[in-house]
Design a protein around this nucleic acid. Structure first.
Lengths: 258, 258
DNA sequence: GCAAAAGTGTTTTGCCTACACCCATGT
DNA sequence: ACATGGGTGTAGGCAAAACACTTTTGC
């Protein structure tokens, strides 16, 4: 895809509306493959030969009329084809030099009508099932790709900062709220859930303690269904109890109360 | 103070620099008087007769060149005279209708060169000693006033939302990090600290348990100093242990770990 | 029957909670 | 000596952490 096609794509949906020059959204989309956290990045290799940070977080300017959350959803959709993603805002990044690095200029000049404008970006993160993205390989599939979190060492602009803060945010969030509703399949085993937690914290967890802890939260419903066709004792499937899940999402399950 | 004076005040420090049309900062400044949380609000009564929400959070547009944190500090300083305040970002508010309410238009028209521009605001909060503000009654003292948190029922724009989210944020933050470094005097008694926590959570706390808990965190240094001239057993003064305090600020003291 | 992953229980330790009285000072 | 707020200890329950073996299935 050429740059002009890219630019056109970004504006196609709302030709009558004007882009804000100064406000963008960036999305950190985490996926889980059963083993490892991945992040959905835009692949700009065609245009950015020999640049360490050819991959970038999906993000772009918002429209003047649109809500930030909507903008994040729209931009993510336009760049990756994803729809109906629950995005959560975790910060605003506004260093006046955040898009002034020399190496980032060619891209900006190609993509922005005013490449020198100062842009504050509102950062969002989402957790999705990687399969949701893989199973819908659109024309975007060439542009957006999953990259294992641990393999990401450079990103353009301040995207590496944003990524690191998102990981931090995700970890802190996971300590006080259940996680996985958007990341695990609808039915999943406790061990799959444990692997997710191990991936988020990058750390082995004792399976007896993990199970007890999760079960005691009463946030899962045990199903009458087992794995089939596995060459070992089949695991029982669970799913989230929506009410409990949402009440924990709101209130958290802090222990340090007074 | 007239509106034009107000407008001038807001721009006096950087006449050569241009205001962003679309990005503002708003600050929720909490103060503690030993009993109750207060919030520092701008008093617009002179200009806003008969309007329920004459008081507003201190906030304004940022300059194109300036960092968000700097902008928050500057705006707060210009509107209240406060300096050297530690501000923490807690969210961005970008509903496209957030400043479209009819009752808010007169003020916007008076204060903004482009009152119809869409503005996303980055919200900050700070905790300060109320005495720091009281003891420096500048010309601002008439404009900015402390209002007890519980007495605030309406605010213009989306400021009431912002305020509520800041309270939420403050409470959640207090559960996982020490609070008070910027809110309590340098030396303080455990009971003063307890009253602060009671104010934040709006709830009585058992003093034996509170003391044990705080002491066990090892975030305080006991001083060799007592209250003097009080008609009861003098309390021992404590101060924050900076290293421990900052390490907790970074890491938090979660109990729900794996 | 064996490989592979699922699932289960106990003990120890520390923290949270609830609760009531004595202490040091000024007047 | 009394009023005022400061300061302390203990017992019971619950959750966290550490730790190893048995179960069920496919092949």
């Amino acid at each position: 895809m050429t740059l002009s096609k890219y630019t056109k794509m970004l504006t196609k949906k709302s030709t009558s509306k004007t882009l804000s020059e100064n406000i963008s959204v960036d999305c950190v989309v985490f996926g889980f493959d059963g083993n490892e956290l991945h992040v959905l990045l835009i692949d700009r290799e065609d245009e950015m030969k020999n640049v360490a940070s050819a991959y970038a977080l999906p993000g772009n300017l918002i429209y003047d009329h649109e809500d930030l959350n909507q903008a994040a959803e729209r931009v993510l959709n336009e760049l990756t084809g994803l729809t109906n993603i629950y995005l959560e805002q975790f910060g605003a990044f506004g260093n006046p030099n955040r898009i002034k690095k020399k190496e980032d200029q060619p891209w900006l000049k190609a993509v922005r009508t005013n490449p020198n404008a100062r842009v504050v970006t509102i950062a969002y993160y989402a957790l999705i099932r990687m399969s949701d993205f893989k199973l819908n390989p659109s024309s975007f599939a060439k542009e957006a790709t999953w990259v294992p979190l641990k393999d990401i060492a450079h990103l353009p602009f301040d995207h590496f900062d944003i990524l690191n803060q998102s990981v931090n945010y995700l970890r802190n969030n996971t300590k006080i709220r259940p996680v996985g509703y958007n990341l695990l399949p609808e039915k999943f085993t406790l061990n799959e859930m444990q692997k997710l937690y191990e991936a988020i914290f990058n750390k082995k967890i004792d399976n007896r303690n993990f199970r007890r802890k999760i079960i005691n939260l009463e946030v899962l419903n045990k199903l009458d269904e087992k794995q089939e066709g596995v060459a070992h004792k089949p695991a029982i499937y669970y799913q989230f109890n929506k009410e409990k899940y949402h009440s924990y999402i709101e209130k958290g399950f802090f222990k340090f109360e007074f």
